[in-house]
Design a protein around this nucleic acid. Structure first.
Lengths: 257, 257
DNA sequence: GCCACGGTTCGGCCGGCGCCGAAGTACCGG
DNA sequence: CCGGTACTTCGGCGCCGGCCGAACCGTGGC
């Protein structure tokens, strides 16, 4: 039995509007969009959840602004990214967490490409420790938080993903996480997300994002360098993780070697 | 707390061998493989879990045997499919469930393509009710079974996916499901799998496969037609679902219209 | 041994698309 | 208004790769 009232499953006949009916789907079109090195590099950069301007994406992908512009408009038409105009800049971001999930699922079955430089290797090791995945915590920190919440019965499988138990809601509220806001969000509340560096599950959805927000705004975690994707635990964060969640620092230390 | 002894998380430092270290990964290469209509059609056909001969795949994709052969060898080199020679035929199948998951994750963000014929539409509606996803139950039946197991606390989030509780093990053993065999399997024991027709979660992994096996071998479910992907619930199956799991027939009936 | 059949390899055709430079458009600051 | 910057559109080049027919290899049936 779950902590929330009513059945965990949805007894309605899966919605009557046409969007939910099974339809053929053009998988090849989307894969073709991702299957171009420059576009894949852009999407990878956007996977951190930050909106980036077209010029930055051009530089990241190593192509001219003209080419980048074409790629971005294709990605937009394909529904993979959204664009928000702001002054002279046009910021791009992934259209939905589902896009991020598809990218990670692809990464999981993609051939490894040997790390080239020492600098690159060091950066990757840092990412393994803590990073954001779209907008929630990933890496060893994300996995540790996820596992602890499950272990303490703060979240339980249910619905389409997880349901928050009453003690779990108290625990997170005590940390200042905006649980009510997450419940009100129109996106999926809480669901598991496969972490491709750890090959383990961490917490995604509105709740995962709310936790990530809180940890960043309190300075418990800080963005690592200018890459924005890596995360570092501060001394205060170490205290909070240990005292409130019982997570020792070893659980999320960077892997050895 | 979970039902099994010891912590639900893995306290080891994520394995010391190089394979688990974070590496750059060539997502574009894999996406490029999938992003070709003929190859995508082949992969889609293989998503049902059946191994298919090269000739059949050529016919399905609508290309000549020569072209199909080239596509298949590329897919093989890319690690997406495996081939097993048998007499004059060479049977192809997806290399791993992860490949299937990536395909489903892509399908979730792919643009819908309107169903063309009435016949096609009817076939799709049947698939919505019950189907296999790689080797486990999917569709409305898969979702109903998954939700019921969660609702009855037979499975709980933990580890990398789900852990089976003691009452849950009794429940499934009572149905004749080979729980011990599933535990012994080297693959992931039980994990959620996103169903792209239902947009809901169902049960994958060794346990999901064991349940599917049992239901098919007892004749509670039968393959629908020659497509092998669709499933139909028999009268006996209806009884078992209602009596042992408390799932009424409405939960998995084909959607209206 | 011969043929039939499934599958692969090879050669050559051709369309699509990724690329850039240059020109065009929108927005901002002075 | 004018110049600079950010971005898009256009035209044209070149190559990758998807396609097929034909030839080639291995298996199985007779």
């Amino acid at each position: 039995m779950t902590a929330s009232p009513g059945p965990a499953y949805d007894t309605r006949p899966v919605a009557a509007d046409g969007a939910e009916r099974p339809v053929e789907v053009d998988t090849a079109a989307v894969a073709r969009l991702i299957g171009e090195p420059a576009r894949a590099a852009m999407l990878d950069a956007l996977l951190a959840g930050r909106a980036l301007a077209a010029g930055e994406l051009a530089r990241i992908a190593g192509v001219s602004p003209a080419t980048a512009s074409e790629h971005l408009s294709r990605l937009r038409e394909g529904g993979l990214i959204e664009v928000v105009a702001q002054g002279r800049h046009r910021y791009h971001r992934l259209a939905s967490p589902d896009v991020g999930h598809a990218l990670e699922a692809l990464a999981l079955i993609s051939p490894p490409r040997p790390v080239r430089t020492l600098r690159q290797s060091r950066a990757n090791r840092a990412l393994a420790s803590g990073r954001t995945c779209y907008d929630h915590l990933a890496g060893r920190i994300g996995v540790a938080v996820h596992d602890t919440l499950v272990e303490r019965d703060a979240i339980r499988a249910g619905g389409d993903g997880y349901l928050l138990t009453d003690p779990g809601a108290d625990l997170l509220a005590g940390l200042g996480v905006d649980v009510a806001g997450a419940r009100g969000a129109r996106r999926s509340f809480a669901r598991p997300c496969l972490d491709f560096t750890e090959r383990r599950t961490h917490l995604a959805g509105a709740l995962g994002a709310a936790i990530c927000d809180r940890f960043l705004s309190q300075g418990w975690l800080v963005r690592r360098g200018t890459g924005q994707r890596g995360l570092r635990v501060t001394d205060g964060g170490r205290r909070v993780l240990a005292d409130s969640l019982g997570i020792p620092a070893e659980r999320y230390a960077a892997p050895a070697e």
